[in-house]
């Protein structure tokens, strides 16, 4: 399913970040995608299901969450963090600001697939200098 992706801050993300980014809290706060309930049923996803989000930059597996801020059909939200940013595009259009909001994305079911921790994700995507 095609969606417009928005990334941004949440209070849980802020709180978890201050406790360090290696913890489960951080993953729980950031490795999620908030979807409009209608979009969820169209997709066939339930709260807590893994989904794969793919953009021109790459793909990531995160947990689907029913948005509390709905209705916003066609718009989905991932809190700022490594999961969001491995699929954010680069072009700043000469402003210095990458497009963190309004990214075209394709979302599919990925039930049962493992959601990587921040550390694993970084190691996988940017292959550590080892």
């Amino acid at each position: 399913m095609e969606i417009t992706l928005i990334t941004g801050r949440t209070v849980a993300q802020g709180e978890a970040m201050e406790k360090g980014k290696t913890g489960e809290d951080f993953k729980r706060a950031c490795a999620v995608i908030e979807l409009d309930p209608e979009d969820m049923s169209k997709l066939g996803a339930y709260d807590g299901d893994e989904v794969r989000v793919r953009t021109s930059e790459g793909e990531v597996v995160v947990v689907a969450k029913k948005s509390r801020d709905a209705p916003h059909p066609g718009v989905a939200f991932i809190p700022m963090g490594p999961w969001a940013n491995v699929i954010v595009g680069g072009d700043t259009e000469s402003t210095g600001m990458p497009p963190f909001k309004g990214i075209k994305a394709e979302i599919t079911l990925a039930k049962g697939e493992r959601v990587l921790s921040a550390e694993e994700l970084i190691a996988q995507v940017y292959k550590l200098k080892e």
Binding site: E57, G81, P82, N85, G90, Y126
Partner: peptide
């Protein structure tokens, strides 16, 4: 690394 896009 968390907050910049992949290309960067």
């Amino acid at each position: 690394v968390s907050h910049f896009p992949r290309k960067s």
